[in-house]
Design a protein around this nucleic acid. Structure first.
Lengths: 250, 250
DNA sequence: AAGTGGTCTAGACCACTAG
DNA sequence: TAGTGGTCTAGACCACTTT
């Protein structure tokens, strides 16, 4: 080619990506619509395959498009669940035998799998947070509409919960928080730490995340009224599936 | 080459990325350390340039590495600010003439730039949230240690704040919330919506984000004691710079 | 001047999906 | 079977950083 590069404008792949992004954000291309593929872009812009791929990669990494092998690249959907940070953990929820999760999905079908319950030595940070060397861990994965949306690991001081239903698959009405209440240690205060980052391989697989999808990491510690930590819950959420809501007063 | 592909194992670029990731997460390669570059990987693994690039791109998109042109690819740093969702907005903060931001940075130097204050028609979602057609908007960018970490746009019902210091660059002691108090509309309740996504071009530039860095979107609405919405604040945070903390009771 | 990452070309073979 | 995206090779020129 040897076209004068002018070099002050963005590279070809960026200009192509910009054009497609504009059409997506303007609503001209909608959820689930098919984008022009590699071959189309090569022909339309007279570019090499790698350059066309690079343009599509921009949109994929922005989470605006999803590639489907053998089929095409498609505009991506975003239909989040609203997760209420405070309301969902009110005493009324678990005090009346309802699972916390019900507060989020409001009727939408959800399932839990990959349940694993083990007793093990606590990792340093968990040990520090719970002031315990041994912990019971409850690991699970949540799916809504058959789609995985969250990984969660709950840690409990082993000596405290040993022998309770917290170490069983079926924790009974109200779940683990109701059981902590039975033990005389009802959670009264929570603190949640929230951060976002890109997923790493095990998470990408377990949550079935396409490129360009960050995860939200929520680490929650539950305290009794006297300030004793009784649970640490580490969650990894598909960011495309969630909006977190927090309410508080001045 | 024509090596038997075996095809059941991951592609070359993935294996290389996996190896480097393991070394990073194990602490063998530390914050700021230089990774083997394209040329090194080409030589070590006898691969083409594009394949080496692809391997490094994996780590960059995971936010574990940052490329510096002309120099190399480096392991990435993560030194977040802890942002207290509730404490920072307590009445004591702005009631005593302190800027809210002080609650976050705790002495670390911060600056504000790109300040823009305009009156304009409200976008549909803001109009709905504030029940107002015209709004005053305060846009700004926050920098900590000379690094941009947050973009923020605050919206106020125009008729309410017209003529107050909220429409000026210097809002006076206690900031805009104290001024709302002066107007007889002190914020009493807040609701924050949090989500994460990959940044789009204007944000990438303004926050100077390297690849693989999601943003956290926080949309906060402030209400008076009587439930009247008086402010909508939309923030975009560099996810590598922040941990959000929320405290609440059962 | 040498080395680095950024962009791009022109091919190739593969696995997968769809009509 | 034809078309799609996924992986890979073997080159090239550029702008930038470092020495």
């Amino acid at each position: 080619m040897s076209e004068s590069p002018v070099s002050q404008e963005p590279p070809i792949y960026r200009r192509i990506a910009d054009g497609l992004r504009t059409r997506i954000l303007a609503g001209e291309l909608r959820d689930g619509d098919r984008l022009p593929g590699e071959n189309t872009l090569m022909a339309e812009h007279a570019i090499a395959r790698a350059t066309a791929r690079q343009a599509l990669a921009v949109l994929i990494n922005e989470g605006l498009a999803v590639p489907k092998r053998g089929s095409g690249v498609y505009v991506r959907l975003f239909k989040p669940i609203r997760r209420h940070g405070s309301r969902r953990l009110s005493r009324e929820q678990w005090g009346q035998g309802r699972a916390i999760w019900d507060a989020d999905t409001r009727g939408r079908p959800f399932t839990v799998d990959e349940v694993e319950i083990v007793r093990q030595p606590a990792a340093p940070d968990v040990a520090a947070a719970l002031d315990a060397d041994e912990v019971w861990v409850r690991r699970r994965r949540y799916l809504v509409d058959a789609r995985p949306v969250q990984l969660a690991s709950s840690y409990f001081p082993a000596e405290v919960v040993e022998g309770s239903a917290i170490t069983l698959h079926d924790t009974g009405p109200g779940g683990v928080y109701a059981r902590l209440g039975d033990l005389g240690l009802p959670p009264a205060h929570f603190t949640e730490e929230v951060r976002a980052r890109m997923p790493r391989p095990p998470e990408t697989d377990l949550l079935d995340l396409p490129g360009g999808t960050p995860v939200i990491e929520v680490s929650r510690t539950a305290f009794t009224a006297s300030g004793r930590p009784v649970e640490v819950n580490r969650m990894v959420l598909d960011s495309a599936a969630y909006i977190l809501q927090y309410d508080f007063d001045a």
